[in-house]
């Protein structure tokens, strides 16, 4: 796999709307064949960032190169090399599946035999052949997403942008959609995907977490998970969980206690020593005659990492 020149390279990308800084000096690099995830809550700046990367919105400052073309200077040329799937279905509901694809093919300059060949490929590859004469608006949501993806792939783009591709889609369709994304990445397409599903973040090769227009954490999922949590989490089994929760809530060392799958997850404040707290738990159990299991340090999940990072930046 060619990993020398990135298909997306954005540096110091910034966008202001009046006084409001929607995107604040972010860097994004995506290699061919890589699935890159842009995560963040609604309003964190993901959509503004993706709109700039696709050439829909000129940046206030910064450089963008997409598929070896300067997106700021030559947006139209760069657009011919990218595929974009919007969050909302934005093809034509009153046209059939194949009519929508024919329009898209025309807009990307595909003609004659080449157009026919690509249409057949897209319909087959995204399992839409049976529905090619169906009205787009009559399709189930999962199929509408596939149609949008088919339309974005007709011209064999080198980069694919997917804005919340699986939101609102049932789990089976989500699964299938991710399989398709991996197949495309295996063919060498660089893929940038935005999502707010934490479990989907694990499917990405690399991630950036956005908050208030900035990237606050980035790396592979493994790298992110290996980082020591600033706010350690203890897991505790106890038949007296409810009473213990009440008791420990007021401790100065404890940030929050969350009941989770029959256990208590006790998140400590930053800088607290876990062994001191474990000792304190044992002492309290004896004192109040509570039955508690052995507390142990929890393996952080990606969500814990993100919550910790976001809180750190909010402070």
């Amino acid at each position: 796999m060619n990993d020398t020149t990135p298909v997306i390279l954005a540096e110091d990308l910034t966008r202001r709307f009046g006084d409001f800084v929607a995107v604040d000096h972010i860097h994004v690099t995506v290699q061919p064949g890589e699935v890159f995830g842009l995560l963040g809550a609604n309003g964190a700046g993901k959509t503004t960032a993706i709109r700039m990367l696709c050439g829909m919105l000129p940046p206030t400052a910064g450089r963008i190169r997409v598929a070896d073309v300067d997106m700021v200077q030559h947006a139209r040329r760069a657009r011919g090399r990218i595929g974009y799937v919007a969050q909302r279905f934005s093809l034509y509901g009153d046209l059939t599946v194949s009519e929508n694809l024919k329009l898209q093919a025309g807009l990307y300059g595909l003609t004659g035999a080449r157009q026919r060949e690509r249409l057949i490929w897209a319909l087959a590859h995204l399992e839409l052949t049976d529905r090619k004469d169906a009205m787009a608006r009559a399709l189930p949501l999962g199929y509408q997403r596939r149609l949008a993806l088919a339309a974005a792939l007709l011209h064999e783009p080198r980069v694919l942008f997917l804005d919340e591709p699986t939101s609102g889609v049932d789990p089976m369709a989500r699964q299938r959609f991710w399989e398709l994304i991996y197949e495309l990445a295996d063919d060498g397409i660089g893929i940038l995907v935005t999502t707010h599903y934490m479990d989907e973040a694990l499917f990405c090769d690399r991630l950036s977490l956005m908050q208030a227009g900035r990237i606050v954490a980035e790396g592979t999922p493994d790298e992110l998970l290996r980082q020591p949590l600033p706010t350690p989490i203890l897991e505790l089994n106890s038949p007296d969980a409810a009473r213990f929760e009440q008791l420990a809530q007021t401790w100065p060392e404890v940030r929050e206690i969350v009941p989770h799958a029959g256990q208590l997850r006790i998140r400590l404040r930053a800088g607290m020593d876990t062994s001191t707290v474990i000792a304190k738990i044992h002492a309290a159990a004896v004192e109040h005659k509570l039955t508690v299991g052995v507390p142990h340090l929890a393996t952080p999940e990606l969500e814990d990492v993100f919550v910790a990072v976001l809180e750190e930046h909010e402070a």
């Binding site: 657009r79 974009y84 909302r88 034509y92 807009l107």
Partner: peptide, 14 residues
């Protein structure tokens, strides 16, 4: 109204 322009704006159409 239907948001089709969003899609058109990512194509090379002028």
């Amino acid at each position: 109204e239907q948001g089709n322009l969003v899609m058109l704006r990512t194509t090379p159409l002028t």
